[in-house]
């Protein structure tokens, strides 16, 4: 039965589908799209640039701030405040890396090459996690260094060696990475760019607004478990008594992202592409 095909000498006799091969492939896909490269550049510029602007403006306003405000001032999170905008660039990128495959039809090529499907998803997750974490960590450290210089005149600036600072800086890069993974999970789940981006923005920015309309005590309980609120505790140095602790909050946020990703993976295995 296979005699005819066995006689033919393959020109690629060592071809095997492997995990390493899938990682290489996903790296090629990531670096070979202009939109991906520009999204990373946008995230870096927003994080470093906007943070510097906010630090500059804060130093400028320092004299007008009352003692209460000064006491609650968090020099670390202020110097990396551009992360608030960078998270949108990274989140949208996470969505597009998957939903872009659906909208262009590329997903059929991907799933033909990796017919068990899940290894392709995990390959994307690993490559995106590594690339995002490294770029966001470097950007965060840079933003912090610039920001602390600008905040020096306030006398409230901090250094890398101060308590909790490194945790907050690494935490910021981790938070941004998980925002991207949440976007990626939503992209895989909804398979539609606009829908997934709207959902992501809704989760991060609209849920807190809706929550603000609830009765005060209920509002305070729910607030600490909102994805963005919980996740952002890990980049704060000055503790907030109403919020979860940094790592507990981050754990809750990772839990939400993981839940979305697991449901997406389950459906990816079952749905027709």
């Amino acid at each position: 039965m296979t005699t005819t095909t066995a006689q033919r000498q393959s020109v690629v006799p060592n071809a095997r589908l492997t995990g390493v091969g899938i990682l290489r492939s996903e790296w090629t896909k990531t670096r070979s799209l202009r939109s991906t490269v520009w999204s990373f550049i946008a995230a870096v510029v927003l994080l470093v640039g906007v943070s510097a602007l906010i630090s500059f403006a804060t130093a400028d306003n320092w004299k007008t701030m009352d003692p209460g405000e000064r006491a609650g001032f968090d020099a670390t999170s202020t110097s990396i405040a551009g992360g608030f905008l960078a998270q949108l660039a990274i989140g949208v990128l996470g969505v597009l890396l998957i939903s872009g495959e659906y909208s262009t039809g590329m997903i059929r090529s991907t799933m033909s090459a990796v017919p068990r499907r899940l290894p392709a998803l995990w390959g994307k997750v690993v490559v995106f996690t590594v690339v995002t974490f490294i770029t966001m960590l470097v950007s965060t450290l840079l933003a912090f260094a610039i920001g602390q210089q600008l905040l020096k005149s306030t006398g409230a600036s901090v250094g890398f060696g101060d308590p909790q600072v490194m945790r907050a800086l690494v935490g910021a890069a981790l938070y941004l990475t998980v925002v991207g993974l949440l976007g990626m999970g939503l992209g895989a789940l909804l398979r539609h760019s606009a829908g997934a981006i709207s959902t992501l923005v809704g989760i991060l920015l609209v849920l807190p607004i809706i929550n603000a309309f609830l009765p005060a005590d209920l509002q305070r309980t729910i607030r600490k478990f909102l994805p963005g609120e919980a996740g952002q505790q890990v980049l704060m140095v000055v503790p907030n008594p109403d919020a979860l602790s940094p790592w507990a909050g981050f754990g809750v946020f990772v839990g939400y992202a993981a839940l979305v990703m697991v449901v997406a993976a389950f459906l990816l295995k079952r749905r027709d592409v």
């Binding site: 095997r16 589908l17 492997t18 390493v20 899938i22 492939s25 872009g100 262009t104 590329m106």
Partner: peptide, 19 residues
Amino acid sequence: VHTGRSAYNHLLALAQTHG
């Protein structure tokens, strides 16, 4: 095929999965 990727990179990404 992803419309934003070059023909070469499209094929390269597929080839790399299988070494």
